[in-house]
């Protein structure tokens, strides 16, 4: 399943520069708002679901090579965060839905 399908299915807003999301195939996912837990738990290629929206999530996402970050509950990263994400090739997506619902849907879509 490619990232474009996930974006369409979950009606996600694309925060970073759009690209060909059909060429990205996420492998599994991880959710936590504690950055150290993400550092320890998230794997390369995962989708990371969090309601953190500040600058430091970019460093974590980039270090771990996650496929994309889904920021939940309409938390809004500022322009510096989005610029840094673009710079480091981190894809950031956003949704008004809570993390629980997003993870549930991703699980149902068989992203396990």
């Amino acid at each position: 399943m490619n990232l474009q399908t996930i974006i369409d299915e979950l009606e996600l807003t694309i925060l970073t520069t759009p690209q060909d999301f059909t060429s990205i195939t996420p492998k599994g996912g991880y959710t936590s708002d504690l950055l150290s837990c993400v550092m320890a738990g998230a794997k390369s290629g995962n989708i990371w679901v969090t309601l953190q929206a500040h600058l430091n999530i970019v460093a974590v996402a980039s270090m771990l090579d996650v496929a994309a970050v889904i920021i939940t509950e309409d938390a809004q990263p500022d322009s510096a965060t989005i610029a840094k994400a673009n710079d480091q090739g981190v894809i950031m997506l956003s949704t008004p839905k809570p993390s629980y619902e997003i993870c549930g849907t991703l699980w149902q879509m068989n992203l396990r």
């Binding site: 504690l34 950055l35 150290s36 320890a40 500040h54 999530i57």
Partner: peptide, 15 residues
């Protein structure tokens, strides 16, 4: 609030 201070930093390093 920023997601730090989980008390896992040194534990992660050890791993």
């Amino acid at each position: 609030e920023m997601g730090f201070g989980a008390g896992m930093g040194l534990v992660n390093i050890q791993k």
